[in-house]
Amino acid sequence: MSVQTTPALSPVRAGVAERAALTALVDEPEAPFSDAPVYSPQGTGVLLLLALLSPKTPKESRPS
């Protein structure tokens, strides 16, 4: 395809809005808000789990 020979097919340049939309995607910055770890009370679920897994008093074994 050649600009000189097929001018009718040559698309026009993008407008201001199109440029802006393109630039936003090309220059996409990092996430503006951090989701870094903070103290979470749910973390204590680990302790609960440990308690649930703690050994029970052994039962008397019976010969089968």
């Binding site: 395809m1 600009v3 040559s10 698309p11 026009v12 340049r13 993008a14 199109e18 440029r19 393109l22 630039t23 090309v26 220059d27």
Partner: peptide, 21 residues
């Protein structure tokens, strides 16, 4: 290649573009 060529004419690089662009 053809599409890229067209795309470069519709959205040509500009002096005001970011260094990264």
């Amino acid at each position: 290649r053809d599409t890229l060529d067209t795309a470069l004419r519709v959205f040509p690089p500009r002096p005001g573009d970011s260094v990264e662009a």
